[in-house]
Design a binder for these strands. Structure first.
Lengths: 130, 130
DNA sequence: TCACTATATAATTATACATGCATATAGCTA
DNA sequence: TAGCTATATGCATGTATAATTATATAGTGA
């Protein structure tokens, strides 16, 4: 599957994607390149914070950037991120649906929480997610 | 792209995948269900640590588990993880190749580090990765 | 019941990281 | 040059998390 030497790098990429603010930035870039200020306007974060997230995305090779006069345009460098988000999104929805489906009628029979018996403690936070 | 209510959940999933040890666990499960002890043997971590990572994977819905006698078998719950790893792996390899390709003949002309001028500081850690 | 094995959890420590504020740097225009 | 805008960076702080050790829990069999 993953060459041992790649594991750390692949994990790092997942980690970079594992930040809500950075996912929102990538969404903001889905329509095309945008300046830092535009992104700051789209999201409601402060400029230094967005800049730092952009630097992290850039280092990971997920976005590219180009200066134009006084502004810097960022853009998505590898569209695979959208594919990834789509897959994870669907998978997450499946999981949430699965939790809700079984949450009602299960009891805790043995010590270890199997998938079904573990549901009840998590579903609460998932209501209305889809 | 991602519904706003989903962003946090999707990010959490990426984050769960963004840990080398957990990726290795998923790899160990690629051939089929395995007990905790078997996984501990495959990787070289200690048992409590592996158990905690397994719990995190379980909570994220990425693995399932089933007790059999005294042992607990874990298995991959959603094969999408392999697709994700494959995509990220390829993307990472592309990025690494891109870094190496341009690393040699670039100079720093302006203050902002564009993709090419930023390469030199990163390529060192990527030698021999593919 | 007791001993044994397998797994999970609690407590601790160290480290990574996101955030916010202040400030520095780069480019533009006059 | 000075003054302005846009972006990046340094620093401090709080929080999340991975790893380690010790211990608890669950299941098996005598």
């Amino acid at each position: 599957m993953i060459h041992e030497k790649m594991v750390e790098l692949v994990a790092r990429r997942f980690q970079v994607l594992g930040e809500p603010c950075r996912l929102r930035i990538l969404q903001a870039l889905q329509g095309g390149p945008r300046t830092v200020n535009e992104i700051v306007g789209d999201l409601d974060g402060n400029q230094p914070n967005i800049s730092k997230h952009l630097q992290i995305l850039f280092d990971a090779g997920l976005v590219g950037r180009e200066r134009s006069g006084n502004s810097v345009f960022y853009s998505v460098a590898d569209p695979v991120v959208f594919k990834l988000c789509e897959l994870v999104c669907r998978s997450t929805a499946r999981h949430a649906a699965h939790l809700q489906q079984y949450a009602a009628g299960t009891r805790r029979r043995s010590g270890i929480q199997t998938h079904k018996s573990h549901l009840r403690s998590k579903v609460g936070s998932l209501q209305g997610v889809n």
